[in-house]
Design a binder for these strands. Structure first.
Lengths: 231, 231
DNA sequence: GTCTATAGATTGATAGAC
DNA sequence: GTCTATCAATCTATAGAC
């Protein structure tokens, strides 16, 4: 066998990899620097030497994945827009949503790294620590707002506020999906494990594309669903 | 004025109310018994005297709201089923989803208590502490499985696995929605605040009902959305 | 860069007086 | 039931030798 084992990554990368895994499995707060360093095979003081503080380490763990994902999102949304403009038509909502969702499930790197980060990202919006939550929110804001603008072109008849709120519901499905397809947050009888991340993407895309295009009623119209307001 | 101020609730209830608020605002882990007791105007030792431990207190906070919500869910799903059977037709997916969703947004009690609990519930599925997460999962399982069975009647052509997975995406939207409509997890420019919980329910119901009924392809069929697999 | 040792703060839980 | 006082464990961060 001429397969050489990959060289042991440097300390900084080892810390980031282990931090990603432990943060996914036990959360930020419950993962102490001490156990993290032990699992990475480095000294406890080395973590603060390389990253300055636990908060800074958390930020690096997030940025390492979110940066590339969000750059891809922006590129692909722009590509969908250009493609539609070339053909003289509006962009399709499905294509835009796919451009936003797919990069999160198609990261480079090991499968493990992927799935661990999906768990972390799934917790992001509801993270109780505002400082951590803000890291995510600020990073996802540019591609999200770009998606919003492009979706206005795709669905010009939908009121802006409704569109924006529905986009948040789509993000909610995506986050939930992210959490489900990695660390087993739910028992298998409750959520049948999905074989691969690609079919997860399809599952999600069908759902949110349909949800985004749901009929909506204008003011003073009777509800579409009669049973909605049970007397 | 003959309006009598409501009598100060007893110690146990005061602790539960304050715990609910602080757990929503700062999370379980970051809320210490000490600050909790201080905010409730009770002694620190009183918390452990009344509840035994922090974990037991968390469980009580969750059960106090989830119990009534889930009982309502079961009642309303059964009612939809009976109503449909009486008319000799299948239950409607919208009605079943409404039966599951509405009780969460229509709790009894103060508006504050409502919204604080919505934040807590929104974090439930992605909670890093498995013990806490399990409390939620076990409590929501009965109404969720009942919803699943009833939805099989409503959408008999959909493969079971797909139906189950889509139901999870619906739950994901709901959870996200719960988090958003209470404590401001996101800045208002990113998510326009919703005036009332009822319109939040409508927003959510339109979205998930449409998502659940999205077209799906059988095996060996070409994808509905051509752009889904960009070469 | 890596290590040991420890400071300094906070935590959950409890013992025991009243 | 309510209080004070405290224990034992845990945490982040850092000082200082090598």
């Amino acid at each position: 066998m001429d397969t050489q084992r990959p060289p042991r990554p440097d300390t900084k990368t080892r810390i980031l990899d282990v931090a990603e895994r432990l943060f996914a499995l036990a959360g930020f707060k419950r993962t102490s620097i001490k156990r993290l360093a032990c699992a990475a095979g480095v000294n406890q003081a080395a973590v603060n030497y390389h990253f300055g503080s636990k908060a800074a380490l958390i930020e690096k763990v997030i940025e390492r994945r979110m940066g590339p994902i969000n750059r891809q999102r922006i590129q692909r949304i722009e590509a969908v827009r250009r493609g539609a403009a070339t053909q003289g038509r509006r962009p399709r909502a499905e294509d835009l949503l796919h451009a936003f969702i797919a990069p999160a499930f198609a990261m480079n790197g090991s499968v493990e790294g992927k799935t661990y980060f999906l768990t972390i990202a799934g917790r992001a919006v509801s993270e109780p620590d505002a400082a951590i939550r803000t890291i995510f929110v600020e990073q996802i804001k540019p591609p999200f707002m770009l998606l919003f603008q492009a979706m206005r072109e795709a669905l010009p008849d939908m009121p802006e506020k409704l569109l924006l709120r529905r986009l948040h519901l789509a993000i909610g499905s995506m986050n939930h999906c992210m959490g489900l397809c990695s660390v087993n947050l739910l028992p298998p009888d409750l959520f049948p494990p999905v074989d691969d991340l690609e079919s997860m993407t399809d599952l999600l895309l069908d759902f949110v594309a349909s949800g985004m295009k749901a009929p909506h009623y204008r003011e003073n119209e009777p509800p579409l669903i009669a049973s909605r307001r049970p007397s």
